[in-house]
Simulated assay, not measured.
Amino acid sequence: MTLIYEDEHLVAIDKPPGLLVHRTQLAAGEELAALQLLRDQLGRTVWPVHRLDRGTSGVLLFALSAEVASQLGALFEQGQMDKRYLALVRGWPVADEGLIDHPLARDPELPSAGQTMLEAQTRYRVLQRMTWPLVTDARFPSTRVALLQAEPLQGRRHQIRRHLKHIAHPILGDATHGKGPLNRAVAAHLGVQRLWLHAQRLTLTHPVSGALLRLEAAPDPGCPLTV
């Protein structure tokens, strides 16, 4: 695993796309997960303190003790961490920047009706607008794509993915919230099948030293998540 920060209290890695954070019953056949790989690499127990979807790449933080894990978990729960993501989406948002203010059901795997709706806001900013030579709709000779920076103000499950779908700009490669024909065309065009969402930066106050930490993971050079 590629380490981007390590001290005696915590460690951060650059998680590759397609890797689980930890083993789950939902992916019982998967033997590899970031938690186990990092534990074996460091030769010590590590505690995950937040989640990244399996398809999402980028900054992933672990604690090196249960006490620090509890402190970091509280920071995430209280929204005291600044999280920035890069997302490649279908279409061009009308505005160059905006705030998506749309409550989300607690469990995205279940119908929303009858569920508690949770406050959720995501800021976004358009970094680049592109036109790709992909035809997935006979009405159009090409496909518009935009690179966004997204900042979720809470940590709801699949928040960025659900919010970008809500404004009709789903993330490319999102099998749940996107369009299958477009996702397949993008995978063929780029030669890579993945969710085009990357955890670019995580800024937080160190739970022990009080220092400001800015953890960053740059996308791979030449990939469409770079400007």
Score class of each variant (00 low, 15 high):
Gly222Cys: 12
Arg157Val: 02
His102Val: 05
Trp132Arg: 01
His177Asn: 15
Thr116Pro: 07
Leu99Gln: 03
His166Lys: 13
Gly98Glu: 12
Gln121Ile: 06
Arg139Pro: 00
Asp107Lys: 11
Arg194Phe: 00
Pro219Ile: 04
Arg106Cys: 05
Asp137Glu: 09
Lys179Asp: 15
Leu172Ile: 05
Ala168Ile: 09
Gly173Trp: 04
Arg129Leu: 12
Ser112Met: 11
His189Tyr: 14
Ser209Trp: 00
Ser209Gly: 02
Leu172Asp: 01
Met117Gln: 15
Asp101Lys: 10
Val145Ile: 14
Pro111Val: 04
Ala187His: 12
Gln154Pro: 05
Val135Cys: 02
Leu153Val: 09
Pro170Trp: 10
Thr116Asp: 13
Leu202Tyr: 06
Gln128Tyr: 00
Pro221Thr: 13
Phe140Met: 00
Leu202Gln: 08
Leu197Ala: 03
His198Gly: 01
Ala146Ser: 15
Ala120Gly: 10
Glu119Ser: 15
Gly173Met: 08
Asp107His: 14
Leu215Glu: 05
Pro219His: 04
Gln115Tyr: 10
Leu202Ser: 04
Glu216Leu: 03
Leu153Lys: 12
Gln128Pro: 01
Ala188Trp: 02
Pro219Phe: 03
Phe140Gly: 00
Leu182Arg: 13
His177Gln: 15
Gly114Tyr: 12
Pro219Gly: 03
Gly98Arg: 13
Gly114Lys: 12
Glu216Phe: 02
Met130Gln: 14
Val186Trp: 11
Thr136Ile: 09
Ala218Thr: 08
Leu110Trp: 03
Asp174Trp: 07
Val186Met: 14
Pro133Gln: 02
Arg144Ala: 11
Pro170Phe: 13
Ala120Cys: 11
Leu134Cys: 00
Arg139Asn: 09
Leu148Asp: 04
Gln128Met: 02
Arg139Leu: 09
Gln193Tyr: 02
Arg123Asp: 06
His163Gly: 08
Val145Met: 06
Ala211Arg: 14
His158Leu: 08
Tyr124Asn: 04
Thr116Trp: 06
Leu204Trp: 05
Ser209His: 02
Trp132Met: 01
Pro152Phe: 09
Leu118Lys: 15
Asp107Trp: 10
Pro108His: 12
Val208Asn: 03
Ile100Ala: 04
Pro207Leu: 06
Arg157Glu: 03
Ala175Glu: 15
Arg157Cys: 01
Pro221Trp: 13
Gln200Asp: 09
Leu195Trp: 03
Ala146Asp: 05
Pro207Ala: 08
Thr176Asn: 12
Arg106Tyr: 13
Arg129Glu: 11
Thr122Asn: 09
Thr136Glu: 05
Asn183Phe: 10
His198Met: 02
Pro108Tyr: 13
Ala217Gln: 09
Leu204Asp: 04
Ile171Ala: 06
Leu134Pro: 00
Leu147His: 02
Gly180Ala: 14
